[in-house]
Amino acid sequence: MALKIEDYNTNVRNTWCPGCGNFGIHMALKQALVDLKKTPSDIVLTFDIGCNGNGVDDIEGFRFKGLHGRSIPLAVGAHLANRKMTVISDIGDGGLLHEGVDHLIHAIRSNYDITLLIHNNQNFALTTGQATSTTKEEKPMYAFPDGKAEGSINIGELVLSLNPTFFARGYSGEPQQLADIIKEGIKHKGFSVIEIMQVCPTYTPESNHEWFKERIKETERKATISEAVKCVKDMDIIYTGVIYQNKNLLDYYSRLENRKGKKTELVNEVKNIDIKGILNIFE
């Protein structure tokens, strides 16, 4: 039987606000997986805590909803154990840039072969609208009527400063394009960072679909990191698409000398292992 989007649907009632960008993101994700002919049991999805994480009920697959900020290392642990599974890590701008920013940095430099979907709705939504590093600076937010006193982080700039092998940007209001981007990300052998500009009608209503429509513009892959940086730094236009890709760097696992040529995955190797061969160093 041919794989259909419906195979990825669940019968659990969804809890997102009407008009939430997460709908478009999940639509795109399911489409991408179907297009790649991946069945739900081929997929491991790790979810963070937040509105993004509440999507765990909405999609089929092996799913693990863990802790706030920890979606990346949880996904990495799963990936290293069995690389036959397609591992996707889902996270919000809060979990990514606040609670777990160290994981982003080290995952980029480690180039694990997983895909990261960043739901950037420019706030801590599930805790009812606090400012994050991507919230507009002058915007009044929860407990801060004059806006945040801290500066901001441009996700693309941060990622590109770390010599990534894949950075793309999509938009929740363009699920078809986003599906194509996600497909590219999953196919990429390395750490694929996909920032998704996400509409949040409840806490950042001013950045609505119209607002995004005026600014979003599709772009081509850039040949160098510096060109890519120039592109993501643009404040007037939000460029989307696969912005940067480097296929020449090996992913983490492929660099492990002692795993080269091994046919099995770590999950297949759990059996009593003879230690006689290494005992002589203790004589």
Binding site: P73, L74, A75, V76, L80, D102, L266
Partner: peptide, 17 residues
């Protein structure tokens, strides 16, 4: 923090970590 999460992720997948 990471080491613990990596262990949990790998154990969940069914290897021993």
């Amino acid at each position: 923090i990471t080491a613990a999460q990596l262990v949990m992720g790998s154990m969940y997948m069914g290897t021993r970590a």
